[in-house]
């Protein structure tokens, strides 16, 4: 039991948080919110790009050929059941304090949703459509680029969206070993009992995740296949069984 936050004290916690968030000192310098936010976004972007480069071609290949689906399901399911904090701390003691450990952990956690989004989207493309495209004389590459990829766009993007959420959340946890990004306020605030800083950092991470998710939702909406656009006004929603929170 922590007397500082028990019972009626939470009103003052809100005040502490507001005070921390509005204090000009916290908005400048290398330890300030803009530079930590920049760090958070940069690490997230690097990991997102790297995991797209790794997972998207593999997912597309599996989806296009229909081979290796069982292996892909097993591998991405297995990777996803690894607890984030366990991976981050284990790599932390192997590789030392720094960004290497979290980046590897992030790659492990971000690839499964991208892989799943890609092969599930490609598998869901009507086989008759693919056969028709072949019959029209399209090469396999043209089938992938002009038929399968546009039709699978929603699923692929939803995979990227899940991965992005996963990355932003995990970068926060990674501050436990790397002291980078917005998570640093959270971990530091917890350790030193500066609850205004801890909660201020938490609020910033939550806002960042919500903003990125809304941006992605917009992108998914804009890039949905033409026939979906024309046919219905139904909201596209990721399949829940493909989603899986680990952080």
């Amino acid at each position: 039991m922590d007397p500082a936050v028990a019972g009626g004290a939470h009103v003052s916690l809100v005040d502490d948080t507001t005070a921390w968030l509005t204090d000009a000192v916290n908005w400048s310098g290398p330890a300030g919110i803009p530079s930590r936010l920049g760090e958070h976004l940069l690490v997230s972007l690097v990991v997102l790009v790297a995991s797209v480069v790794i997972a998207l071609p593999i997912g597309m290949l599996i989806g296009h050929t229909g081979r290796g689906v069982v292996v892909a399901v097993a591998v991405s399911g297995g990777l996803r059941s690894i607890p984030t904090l366990g991976l981050v701390t284990l790599l932390g003691i192997w590789l030392g304090i720094g960004l290497e450990a979290p980046i590897i952990a992030l790659l492990v956690l971000a690839t499964p949703p991208i892989l799943t989004g890609a092969y599930a989207g490609f598998r869901a493309v009507d086989r008759d459509v693919v056969d028709t495209a072949r019959a029209l004389g399209m090469t396999p590459w043209m089938v992938v680029r002009s038929v399968e990829l546009p039709l699978a766009a929603t699923s692929v993007l939803n995979g990227l969206r899940s991965a992005t959420l996963q990355i932003v959340a995990t970068v926060t946890v990674a501050a436990y070993v790397a002291d980078r990004g917005l998570g640093r306020y959270v971990i530091e605030g917890l350790r030193t009992r500066q609850y205004g800083e801890m909660l201020g950092g938490s609020v910033l991470v939550i806002i960042l995740a919500l903003v990125l998710d809304v941006l992605f939702a917009g992108l998914v909406h804009l890039l949905r296949p033409a026939h979906v656009r024309a046919a219905s006004r139904t909201v596209t929603r990721p399949n829940t069984t493909e989603r899986h929170l680990v952080t």
Partner: peptide
Amino acid sequence: YTIPSLPLFLVIPV
């Protein structure tokens, strides 16, 4: 679903 878990763990008590 969008809210990262560590921040959520910390905001709930407030």
